[in-house]
Structure formats: C-alpha cells, structure tokens
Design a binder for these strands. Structure first.
Lengths: 134, 134
DNA sequence: GTATTTGCAAAGTTTTTGCACGTGG
DNA sequence: CCACGTGCAAAAACTTTGCAAATAC
C-alpha cells in the first residue's frame, strides 16, 4: 500500500489503522473483490470483522481510493484506483471480465452533450463476448 | 400489454398467467421500477405475491421482454423493452436519471474492437450532472 | 487524553427456495 | 389431465447499526 494512500486518509481527517491498510493491501492482491472476498483475503493474514470491511470500503470509496461496480447482479465489486482508472466489460455468458480504458470507450461526446462528468471507474458494460454469441 | 408479449411468452414455452400480464402492465405504467415498486403497483389492482414478482421478472428478463439496470447501489430497476431500448445516465448528486439512446452513446467502435455484443438496456452510466459538479 | 475506530451481536433489507395447492392449455 | 406456476413461510444472502472496549495520534 503506497504511502500516498495513507496520506490521502490523513488529509481527509481519518486515521490510518491496520484494518484500513489491510483492506487496501487485499485489493492490490485481488485486483477486484466483493466485500466478502475482500474480508476473506484480509483474514489470510490478519483479523478483521466483516462490518469493518464494509465501513472501510465505504470510507475509501468516499475519499476516492477505491471504486465499485456491479459486475454481477449480486454484491458490488470493489477495485483499487491506485492504478489507472478503468471500467469493466463483462460477458454474461462466460462471466469473463476485462478492463476498459477511456480510449477503449470514448465518452467525451456524451460528456460534452450532456454536461455530465462520468464516473468511469464505476462503469460496467455487459454483453456477450464473441465466443458466447454462438 | 401487447399481444406480442403474450406470444413471446408462449413461443418460449411459458404460460400466460394473470400475474405475468399484471407485471408487464405495471411496468408500462411505471416505466421503471424495483421489484418492490412493481409489486406495489400490481397490488393496486390485483393480488400478487412478492416472490412471484421476482420470479416473473427473472423470466421476462430471460426471454427479453424486460431489462434491468442498477440505477442505485441497492435494488435493481427493471424496465420494459416494449419501447425503444435505452440505457441510463444517472447523477450521483441529485439522483436524476435520463435515458440514453444508441446515438447518445456510440458503442460501435467498442463492439468492433472487442467482438462483444453490448446489452445496451442494462447499461447505466453514473456521474455528476452539470449542476452537481459545483 | 480523547475522539475515532473496531468487534460483536442483533436487526434490517433484499432475494431465493421448498413444498402443497391451484390453474392454463 | 397434469406439467407449470403461485402463495406462503422459512431461510439465505447481503448490509447496517448500537454500543462498549480498544487505539491512533
């Protein structure tokens, strides 16, 4: 977990606790995860309560260190924003998911015409991949 | 509820029941709704169990008569496909949501480069509207 | 030292499931 | 008639909350 993440926490007036650091570490390892999956990953190394995971993810989301998207119809999937911000392209058939950059999916026309600032990291595009279309 | 909807049900080997018709009617009235809201709307005129609403929506989704999107972080929102298929643009600030057509958001480049067939009706784009950016 | 954060247990919300009864075709 | 669909009640899945104890700073 980069120092900048800890600075971002402190800058926003929050404390740097082992649990918060552990959640960020788990997200680096997993790349993506539901609250439950993140909890399980953290538990491989530390103790943490599931409620704390929820509260931590909410906080990290608020200060922009993580984003979440709905990759399945059930629990939301969180991912770290430490790398480049990315959206997801998910196949309903096989469940495969790949990252999209702003170059893959150009929203500038939409943003210009609507005046919206799109939350790219939250965006999930569902469909059927080439394989599954048959 | 158009006859074609009933035909679609029968063609897919399902029965046309009053409950299924009522759910489709409720969606015409509401335009959008969570399972709970749809249940409430149906109950204004008929009796129906909430489980049946869930099961019906799942079925209608399967055969393509309705689509759902995640307009909030909680319950999914269903909408009828009887009109034109549309995606949603939702503001996190004020909660306002507007429809998007395929002209508003051109996915042809993405579909060409990835080979995906995008489920446009499921797509929700989140962000901040012009107002809320201030 | 003290305001924030955590763990725990309990409750809240949303969705799914098993099964007996009812019904569309 | 009878396979499919529904209602009901119970369970499962997911998330939030109140409060006392622990801890970051």
């Amino acid at each position: 977990v980069s120092t900048s993440a800890e600075d971002r926490l402190r800058a926003a007036g929050h404390r740097v606790t082992p649990q918060r650091v552990a959640v960020l570490e788990a997200l680096e390892t997993l790349r993506h995860g539901t609250p439950d999956e993140i909890h399980a990953e953290v538990c491989r190394h530390h103790e943490i309560n599931l409620s704390t995971v929820y509260r931590t993810l909410e906080l990290l989301n608020e200060i922009g260190l993580v984003r979440h998207a709905h990759l399945s119809d059930r629990a939301p999937t969180y991912h770290s924003v430490s790398g480049h911000e990315h959206a997801h392209l998910v196949c309903r058939g096989c469940g495969a998911s790949r990252s999209l950059t702003r170059q893959d999916l150009d929203l500038s026309a939409l943003e210009r015409s609507t005046g919206f600032a799109v939350d790219f990291g939250h965006l999930s595009v569902f469909g059927l991949c080439g394989e599954c279309q048959r």
